[in-house]
């Protein structure tokens, strides 16, 4: 990834998880710009702002107060402006049906939050790299489904 940065946003209401997330990226040697939002409302406000830089990958926690991950997912998918954003659901365990449902609703990636920091780094690194591949090799984003 040359001079380009991968722009990443995480929407999660948990302070510790946000910290883990940003720390992980700090330790990874990938050129990324990481932003966090504290809940769904903050996220949508940011995205809807005129001059906001849209993220390449959006990590979305499901359980957030006021506006949860699924609601955000629907809103984002409904807006053509956000078509290029790769959406990764980043959540604590869910049932199989629920996971499949998030894919059907338009999520590209589902990640179960790991309970090991190194594992987290590995996962995030992989997601970013994978995304990069899609981005640079003209692969079909609509078929981009990934689960960890």
């Amino acid at each position: 990834m040359e001079k380009e940065y991968m722009h990443i946003i995480l929407a999660d209401d948990d302070e510790d998880d946000r910290m883990f997330f940003t720390d992980a990226f700090d330790e990874l040697k990938i050129s990324t710009k990481v932003q966090t939002c504290n809940d769904g409302v903050e996220l949508m406000n940011y995205l809807n702002k005129e001059d906001s830089i849209l993220p390449n990958v959006l990590f979305l926690d499901l359980n957030m107060p006021m506006k949860n991950g699924i609601e955000c997912l629907h809103e984002i998918k409904a807006d053509r402006r956000f078509d290029d954003i790769v959406i990764a659901i980043y959540s604590t365990s869910s049932s199989e049906e629920h996971i499949e449902e998030t894919f059907i609703c338009g999520a590209n990636i589902y990640i179960k939050k790991p309970s090991d920091f190194n594992e987290l780094k590995r996962v995030l690194s992989y997601v970013v790299t994978l995304n990069w591949q899609y981005h640079t090799s003209g692969l079909n984003k609509d078929n981009f489904l990934f689960r960890m």
Binding site: D16, F20, K113, P114, S115, D116, F117, N118, E119, L120
Partner: peptide
């Protein structure tokens, strides 16, 4: 999970 992550 958090406990485990911090421990890790």
């Amino acid at each position: 999970r958090k406990i485990q992550t911090f421990i890790s």
